[in-house]
Design a binder for these strands. Structure first.
Lengths: 214, 214
DNA sequence: TAGATTGTTAATCGATTAACAATC
DNA sequence: TAGATTGTTAATCGATTAACAATC
């Protein structure tokens, strides 16, 4: 089943986003070349990527936007919904909490946690901010599998370890520190804003040197 | 010069972060195997990646942490500093503004912009929030090359286009929408939180199915 | 010198692309 | 049928790894 390449998997969410936008503007059918142009890929690549989903297109016609969306969602999230907790209610945590598009992708925010006594008990959106000590009981009550880690870097590794202990399966880590190190098997996806900016700076330099080579 | 592979470039910031942490705890020398273990890479890969920087190690001994940090920074940012503007002061914008580690990597936040009249004139950290109309003059005064785009998805493409017109070279885009489409040449790095969560969900599923194969 | 670790080669592995037969 | 576009093959391209000579 999961013999889909890592590279393809990483592109599926991009296809999904484009397809959802096409659907929103009322497009029912799309060709590989159109998708390719929007995303800056080759049409070969689009067809190859989509073909791993199991022949979703119609030769001579294209792909049905609606069914393609369903199939990609399926492939990505396993057709199930995930309960997610947010740990750390700084500005970043607040931004993440207000983020549209979680629910749309089968992700339910079921709890919000912080250690700051001044924040505990106050509300963030629909959620009451709870102390970290209540994490265990919530994970037991509801099946919580994913966590968003938005705490300061200094405490992130310790909190990550705790998340592993209570039985979380995956962490989306925003702390600019390596939390993998202290964990045994938990799945981590890192988002480090400084790293992305460094990549941007380098990409700009590269684009310029390519241009000057013409 | 820039014949360094994309894959290697994407790992350099990770090396940098680890090395900086090692330096902070007083480590002067490090071996490829140590770095590999921390990041989950192979030692071969670490040596190969670092070798593109031009023979920074000493056989039988290892790498000098300090000089390696300098060289990687050099390679990534071109040894120069970048002026950056932030556009969009929602929760995400606020979080980004307070983010440590920008200055540490040669990135200076020189201006903060929004369209909301209620926000304009108020302060965010050290910066007064300015109307988008003042973007042009700031870009002229100071050489602003990078922008962080943290506005709602609905207006992101239009704002991105404007950033291109005023002469910005690169955008770090947080809006969950394809802004590349309407731009001609500007360099974009996208960070889409929903996409990262989807990748996490899939990585968790994959890890489980691999485990059950044992 | 003996032990350790790099830098680099050659072999392997995986991902992308071009091209076209299949088929709507 | 004629035109269009997919699905897939084979060829190309690029990235990773194992291994070891070079050398500290």
């Amino acid at each position: 089943m999961s013999d889909i390449s890592e590279a393809t998997i990483n592109r599926l969410p991009l296809y999904l986003r484009e397809l959802e936008q096409l659907q929103r503007i009322g497009t029912a059918r799309v060709q590989s070349g159109q998708i390719a142009k929007r995303l800056g890929f080759s049409d070969s690549q689009v067809r190859r990527d989509l073909s791993v989903l199991g022949s979703m297109g119609q030769r001579g016609v294209g792909y049905d936007v609606r069914s393609l969306i369903g199939t990609i969602r399926n492939q990505l999230g396993g057709d199930r919904s995930w309960n997610v907790v947010l740990v750390g209610v700084g500005n970043l945590g607040k931004a993440l909490c207000g983020y549209r598009g979680f629910d749309q992708h089968g992700l339910n925010l079921v709890g919000v946690f912080d250690v700051d006594p001044a924040k505990i008990g106050t509300k963030l959106g629909d959620h009451v901010i709870r102390p970290l000590g209540e994490l265990e009981s919530l994970v037991e009550e509801q099946t919580v599998e994913l966590a968003i880690l938005a705490v300061p870097a200094s405490v992130a590794p310790a909190v990550a370890q705790r998340l592993e202990v209570v039985g979380i399966s995956g962490i989306l880590n925003f702390a600019p520190v390596n939390v993998k190190q202290k964990l045994s098997s938990l799945t981590i996806v890192d988002v480090d804003l400084a790293i992305e900016l460094q990549r941007l700076a380098h990409a700009v330099l590269r684009a310029r040197s390519e241009k000057s080579e013409d």
